[in-house]
Structure formats: structure tokens, C-alpha cells
Amino acid sequence: MAHRMQTDGVDTEAEIIARRPRLRVRLGGSEHVVEASPSAGERFSIRVDGVRYEGWRCVAGDDLQVRVNGHTYTVHFVRRQHAAGGAAGQEEIRASMPGVVVAVHAAAGQGVRTGDKLLTLESMKLQMTIVAAHEAVVAQVHVTRERVFERGALLVSFARQELAGT
């Protein structure tokens, strides 16, 4: 179970090798002895290979910034898309209840990103927006405005593609 990451744009992989007597971490091709306590605070003080490093770290958008010795490193973790809490790899969207299409926001062939609006539906006097759960290309929108649909009806299908982050 390795962590894929980029430090200032350089790809590397991190893995824990051992914990005793000291935490040993492999970063790419080199191993490092780490002395640190479990803290995710912004201020940090750790010892790596016997050298003490003190600095700050925080989240900056999708990245982490780490400031040490007057230099800010940008660290990016390559995360796997999780089906948990999302719908990675979903190839189609079906209606979870019957309703009517209020608006269509996407068209076939269109590339969409996570959170992009696809459809506005009305059902049981409630309007809801269907958004893309992941980056994808819309293969087809199977409904049009004011179209009434049944539960389970196919609404949008996506083009099959390689999942990111594998």
C-alpha cells in the first residue's frame, strides 16, 4: 500500500517500511528514518535522517504546501477515486424516482467535470439538479425538456473511458 505523490512536480511513491525502533519511510528509491509525533497541525517539527526540520504545512487547493528552510514545497497526493461517497466509473445515470425534466444542461460529446450540472428534474414537487459525479464525456442525454420519465429510466450515459488515478 504505497502513497503516490508529487513533490514540486516530481513523481514519487511513499511507503512505510518499518516503525521500530524508528519510523522508516521509503520515498522513491531512498529510505528515510523519521522521528515525528502523530500531529496534523500546521506547525511541524520532525527529524529526518537525523536532521531536524521545522516549518509550516497546510492545504492549498488540491495540494499541500510545506514551508521548510525558507522554501515552499508543493506536494500533491495522487488519490484514487473512491466509489465510496461518489460514483467512480459510473457509466450511466438513471432516475431514482419518476418525474419530469425541467432543463437539460449537457449534450452528447460534451466533457464534464465533477459537479457540472447535467439535468434539472422535478419530482414530487421537488426540483433537483443531477450533477456529474466524476470527470467524463457525455455519450448521450436520453431525455429532453418537459419529458416525463419513470423510475429507473435511463437519463444520461457516459462514454466508457479509463478511470483516472489507477
Partner: peptide
């Protein structure tokens, strides 16, 4: 309960569970 795109993802979801 959870669909996974591949074995690695299944393992990753499993670790989270």
C-alpha cells in the same frame, strides 16, 4: 454495498471501511 472499478480500488475502499 460498494462497487469498485478494479481490485486496487476495492482494496482501497476495504481499507477505508
Amino acid at each position: 454495498d460498494y462497487p469498485a472499478a478494479d481490485e486496487d480500488q476495492a482494496i482501497s475502499i476495504g481499507r477505508e471501511i
